[in-house]
Amino acid sequence: TEEFVRLWREAVRHNQTLHWNGTDFIPGDEWAEEFARREEEKL
């Protein structure tokens, strides 16, 4: 979602874990980066 992408970019900028829907998205984590890339492509 647009909100997820916005929060993810913020988390990456501050190198912080994003807690989203009970899942931890960690900047630099391969799975999280791939998920975020797919979400961005949907926008």
Rank of each mutant, 00 (worst) to 15 (best):
G22W: 04
N15D: 06
R38D: 04
A36W: 07
N15C: 12
L7V: 02
G22V: 02
G28M: 03
D24H: 07
R38A: 11
N21D: 09
E39K: 09
G28P: 03
R13F: 13
L7T: 01
W31C: 13
E10H: 09
E40D: 05
E40R: 07
V5I: 15
E30L: 14
E10W: 13
N21W: 11
L18R: 00
I26V: 13
P27R: 02
E33G: 04
H19W: 08
T23S: 10
L7Q: 09
R13Y: 12
E10K: 07
D24Q: 10
E40V: 13
E41L: 14
D24V: 13
R37I: 05
E33V: 08
A32N: 01
T1F: 11
E39C: 15
F35L: 04
N21H: 13
E33P: 00
E3Y: 08
E39M: 15
H19Y: 08
E3T: 12
L43D: 04
V12T: 06
A11I: 02
T23C: 15
T23I: 15
E2V: 13
T23W: 14
E30N: 10
H14L: 15
W31D: 06
R13L: 15
A36D: 01
V12C: 02
E2S: 13
T17R: 08
E3P: 02
D29M: 08
F25E: 01
H14R: 15
N15W: 10
D24M: 11
D29C: 13
T1H: 11
E34Y: 08
T1I: 14
K42V: 05
V12K: 14
E10D: 11
W20P: 00
W31Y: 08
R38C: 13
V5R: 04
D24F: 12
F4Q: 00
R9T: 06
E39T: 15
E3C: 15
G28Q: 03
K42P: 02
N15R: 10
I26A: 12
T17G: 05
R37A: 10
T17W: 09
R6L: 10
R6D: 06
R38M: 11
E40F: 14
E39V: 15
P27F: 03
E40S: 10
D29Y: 04
V5N: 05
F25N: 01
P27M: 03
R9I: 08
V5P: 00
A36N: 02
W8R: 01
V5W: 09
G22L: 04
P27C: 10
P27S: 02
E33I: 11
T1G: 14
W20F: 10
N15G: 14
F4D: 01
L18D: 00
E34H: 08
R6E: 07
E2M: 13
A32R: 02
G22C: 11
L18I: 06
L7C: 14
T17K: 10
T17E: 03
T23L: 15
E40H: 09
G28K: 03
K42I: 07
Q16I: 14
F25S: 00
T1C: 15
N15M: 10
A36F: 12
R38H: 10
I26Q: 12
G22H: 07
F25T: 01
F4I: 00
E3Q: 10
E3K: 07
A32P: 02
E40L: 14
D29W: 04
R13P: 00
W8E: 01
T1W: 14
E40M: 15
K42H: 06
A36C: 09
V12L: 09
A36E: 01
R6K: 11
W31H: 06
P27W: 02
F25K: 02
A32T: 03
A36P: 00
W31Q: 08
E33H: 10
R9V: 06
W20H: 04
D24L: 14
L43V: 07
H14V: 12
N21G: 11
W8F: 02
Q16E: 11
E30A: 15
K42E: 04
L43R: 05
L43M: 11
W8Y: 02
E34F: 07
G22S: 06
E40Q: 12
E34T: 09
Q16V: 14
H14T: 15
Q16L: 14
E41S: 12
N15L: 08
F4T: 00
R37L: 08
E10Y: 10
R38N: 09
E33Q: 09
V5F: 08
P27K: 02
H19I: 08
T17D: 01
Q16K: 14
R38L: 11
T1R: 14
A11Q: 02
N21Y: 12
E34V: 06
F35S: 01
W31E: 07
E34Q: 13
